[in-house]
């Protein structure tokens, strides 16, 4: 206030705040409408999730900050963060959240939104491609090992085709091409 009085021009300052009006106020509702996202609102920033997380110490955006950023509407920052992809999906944060916020599930929701915008790390995209093309993440290559143990060389009942068909029709197909 005191700045305003005498120097009525824009205050001279080094602080360069984030202008809230440039953020996306719908982001929180977008997440709340996604699987297990509804309890997002309950977060009271206690930071338990970050305390529980084994790798947050490595992160610029800690789990509680990601949740805070969602609530504030920092959609671009969250969806383009490396953190959502490094998340181990270990559910420690979610398990300990005292407000029932499904933190890990929400991070999954963020990854899905990021994927919708094509923001997927190359190696993860590669796994998507592999699922689309071969219908499985791992294929039996050393069937002699199986035979040595008395197992059938081919996995009984295995059929990778249905998965390929399914993923051609869903986002994976759109993401890695080959979809229609």
């Amino acid at each position: 206030m005191s700045e305003a009085g005498e120097h009525s021009t824009t205050p001279v300052t080094l602080v360069d705040p984030i202008d809230i009006s440039t953020l996306d106020p719908h982001f929180r509702n977008e997440i709340r409408s996604m699987p297990n996202g509804d309890d997002l609102y309950a977060c009271f920033a206690c930071t338990t999730c970050t305390a529980a997380c084994p790798i947050a110490c490595q992160w610029t955006y800690k789990p509680h900050q990601l949740i805070r950023m969602i609530l504030l509407g920092m959609r671009n920052e969250v969806l383009s963060s490396k953190e959502i992809w490094e998340c181990l999906t270990c559910f420690q944060c979610q398990e300990r959240c005292p407000q029932g916020v499904r933190v890990t599930d929400i991070i999954f929701d963020c990854k899905n939104l990021a994927a919708e915008e094509g923001l997927v790390p190359e190696n993860i995209l590669g796994l998507g491609r592999q699922l689309l093309e071969s219908g499985q993440l791992y294929q039996v290559t050393a069937d002699w090992e199986r035979e040595d143990l008395g197992l059938e060389p081919e996995v009984p009942g295995l059929d990778p085709e249905p998965m390929k068909a399914i993923l051609h029709g869903t986002r994976t197909g759109r993401l890695v091409g080959g979809g229609d």
């Binding site: 999954f108 994927a115 993860i124 998507g128 219908g135 009942g157 998965m163 993923l167 986002r171 993401l175």
Partner: peptide, 27 residues
């Protein structure tokens, strides 16, 4: 052994394609 099934997709599929992951496992 179940007939006609494959991979579950893993959390990686869940991350990029929630609905695809639901379908594969629901199937």
């Amino acid at each position: 052994y179940m007939e006609g099934v494959g991979c579950c997709g893993s959390p990686n599929l869940r991350a990029i394609d929630y609905f695809g992951w639901l379908l594969v496992n629901a199937r």
